[in-house]
Computed example of a mutant assay.
Amino acid sequence: MEKIRQGSLYGEAAQRIRTMIKDGRLKPGTRVPEKQLCEQFGVSRTPLREALKVLASEGFVELLPNRGARVVKLTRRMLKDTLDVMSALEGLSGELACQHVSSEEIDTMRHLHEQMITHYENGDLAAYFEVNQRIHETLVAAARNEVLLETYNNLNERVRRFRFSQEMSPALWEQVVGEHEQMIAALENRDSEQLGRILRGHLKHKLDRVAVDDTDSDELAS
């Protein structure tokens, strides 16, 4: 692994650890190997521990008194609570986007939507989920609200592996495509009420997958 160059050492270290958690190289519930990461990144313990403080504030790790840090386990209850909040944020972002979105951004989302369909039909689910995520990120950015964008991105980082990696049945696939088409149409019409309603319901199929058991101890499979 390439060593970190001088600059914001803890910021770069935080980004690398964040990526390692999201792609599964650091598993939920495991200790963060500080010594090993210091050697890989070419940094001392001080910037690494500052990075872990940042990640703890974002919900990626929990700090253990005098014992370093551990990757947070995402329980069904935590996931449901997070998706509840994200659903509300996406609804608000849609309402605001109708006031501020440009024609170019709408064209971008429609193009991404067409790409998403092509990737799914070709069986390239990794590309499908990547484009799906970009559609939602573009829409939230179009709200022109920095606080909303930062809050949404922080929450999305926590649950992205679950939200954008689940297998879908043909019926669910048709539902997702239909909702995306409705979203873009409402955005083109600047119908804030309709778009907000669609977006608040868009995560329902994800919430339904975790609504069976809300116990804090019910850990999700990674």
Rank of each mutant, 00 (worst) to 15 (best):
Met1Val: 15
Arg5Ala: 12
Leu9Ala: 02
Glu12Asp: 05
Ile17Pro: 00
Ile17Ser: 00
Thr19Cys: 14
Met20Leu: 11
Leu26Ala: 03
Pro28Ile: 08
Lys35Ile: 07
Gln36Ala: 12
Gln36Lys: 13
Phe41Trp: 06
Val43Glu: 03
Val43Gly: 03
Pro47Ala: 01
Leu48Gln: 05
Arg49Pro: 00
Glu50Val: 14
Lys53Val: 12
Val54Thr: 09
Ala56Trp: 03
Gly59Pro: 01
Phe60Cys: 07
Phe60Leu: 04
Leu64Trp: 12
Pro65Gln: 00
Asn66Ala: 12
Lys73Met: 10
Thr75Val: 08
Leu79Ser: 04
Leu83Asn: 06
Val85Cys: 10
Leu89Thr: 04
Glu90Phe: 07
Ala97Met: 00
Cys98Leu: 04
Ile106Gly: 07
Thr108Met: 10
Arg110Phe: 00
Leu112Ser: 02
His113Pro: 10
Ile117Gln: 12
Thr118Glu: 09
Tyr120Ala: 15
Asp124Pro: 12
Asp124Trp: 09
Asp124Arg: 11
Leu125Thr: 11
Ala126Asn: 10
Ala127Glu: 11
Tyr128Gln: 04
Phe129Ser: 10
Asn132Glu: 15
Asn132Phe: 11
Arg134Ser: 13
Ile135Gly: 07
His136Ser: 12
Thr138His: 10
Leu139Gln: 01
Ala142Ser: 05
Ala143Glu: 06
Leu148Pro: 06
Leu149Asn: 08
Tyr152Cys: 02
Glu157Gln: 14
Pro170Gly: 05
Pro170Ala: 07
Ala171Trp: 05
Gln175Ala: 14
Val176Ser: 08
Glu181Pro: 00
Ala185Glu: 12
Leu187Tyr: 01
Glu188Lys: 10
Asn189Leu: 07
Asn189Thr: 05
Asp191Ser: 03
Asp191Pro: 05
Glu193His: 09
Leu195Val: 01
Ile198Leu: 15
Gly201Val: 08
His202Glu: 07
Leu203Asp: 15
Lys204Gln: 15
Lys204Val: 15
His205Asp: 12
Leu207Val: 01
Ala211Ser: 15
Asp213Cys: 10
Asp213Trp: 08
Thr215Val: 04
Thr215Leu: 07
Asp218Gly: 11
Glu219Trp: 04
Ala221Cys: 13
Ala221Glu: 15
